[in-house]
């Protein structure tokens, strides 16, 4: 499965369009990570626990998007975009979406 953030797959011709595919995941923080983050908050800087948490979530969202594309019979997802939103206090949604296409 090819994924790109541009409107084409360079060097290959798009033969069929399958429309929008999306994958999302809602993740909550965990207490351990939150305690460490609380301490780091005092001094500022990167909160590694959260960086990792969100990276894993994003990988999961991308996976789900790719699964959906595979079900439609696509072999590439083009123009992939990301979104993040807070659902309730303590949980946020990570979204990945793009256009499923068939390329030669």
């Amino acid at each position: 499965m090819i994924t790109t953030s541009i409107e084409s797959v360079p060097g290959r011709k798009i033969v069929e369009q399958y429309g929008i595919v999306q994958g999302s995941t809602v993740r909550a923080k965990n207490v351990g990570v939150d305690c460490v983050a609380g301490c780091q908050n005092t001094f500022g800087g990167e909160l590694k626990g959260y960086s990792q948490l969100l990276e894993e979530s994003r990988a999961e969202a991308l996976d789900r998007m790719i699964q959906q594309a595979e079900q439609k019979g696509a072999n590439a997802v083009i123009n992939v975009r990301f979104g993040t939103s807070t659902i309730t206090q303590g949980a946020s949604e990570i979204l990945a979406y793009g256009t499923a296409v068939l390329v030669q």
Partner: peptide, 16 residues
């Protein structure tokens, strides 16, 4: 262009 792939990087940061 021979090959392409989506890449990303993220950082969570806070003030002091």
């Amino acid at each position: 262009i021979q090959d392409c792939r989506l890449v990303y990087g993220n950082v969570v940061i806070s003030g002091d």
